[in-house]
Amino acid sequence: MMKINNLLKKSVFSLSLLVFMMTLIACKEVSLDVQDIVETAGSISRHVSNMGEKTDAEEVVIGKEVSATLLGAFPLSNNREKQLYINRVGVWLALQTNRTGLNWRFAVLDVQNINAFASPGGYIFVTRGLLDILDNEAQLAGVLSHEIAHVIERHHMNELQSNASFGIANDLSQFALRQSSGGDSLKTQYLSDEVSKKLMVAAKSLYSNGLAKTDEFSADHLGMLISAKAGYDPYAYLEVLHKLDKYSTDDSQLALLFKTHPKPSERLSHLDTLIQSSALNAADDKLLTNRFMKYGM
């Protein structure tokens, strides 16, 4: 009887062990399945984001066309020294970011109004009127960094790709598909005439109406950090906002800037959190006033 009992106990134990092991295996399989699902979902989401997010090369092609529209409205300054100077400052700032592979180009526009523009792909524009009110290279760095931040965060690209009223989102994603499907690389360096025209209309509307307020606040924030990382006094940018704030809201020189941006006073207030944080503690205090003056700025 004892033997039978022992046998029974052993069988129950073995059975329990088997069930326990099977459960473990099952659990492992389930966990593997879950992991697979997570990975698959991740791959899908990456795929989707890749569909939406242009490669640097694609963004440069789009940026060139947008820049051509801006330059069709506002001519380049013919002062070569100023053009080279602004590129030296601009590229040094862009080198502080995670998008050093873009086609960073900077230009002075021969326009008396006070304004600055960024275009996808790394094309940045500053008007002669804006340069006239600045005192030093650190202030210029602050302005350029704000525009660079728009490019880093793809504000204009996202707007062109997501704003249904522009009617160009599908065309832009198809342009990406042609690139990724390994079509004729020479042809895909340019947008078709039809898409190009649509992009021009979209760009006109985008620069005439401006980005979302949140994009401007975000570019102010990231811009100050870029300028500080490059070794400039980041607070020189607050002086620029103070300067803009002194102008009357109906001043003709700032009509487009005021139409497309939040009020300078509001922008200053939004930077309070960043200034009170420790994010800028390591900042240097270089202004480079003499160098700025030397280039006739």
Binding site: W92, G231, A282, A283
Partner: peptide
């Protein structure tokens, strides 16, 4: 005499 500083680029 501009040198890269130990600043972390974060969004707002």
């Amino acid at each position: 005499q501009l040198r890269s500083q130990a600043i972390i680029l974060t969004d707002s």
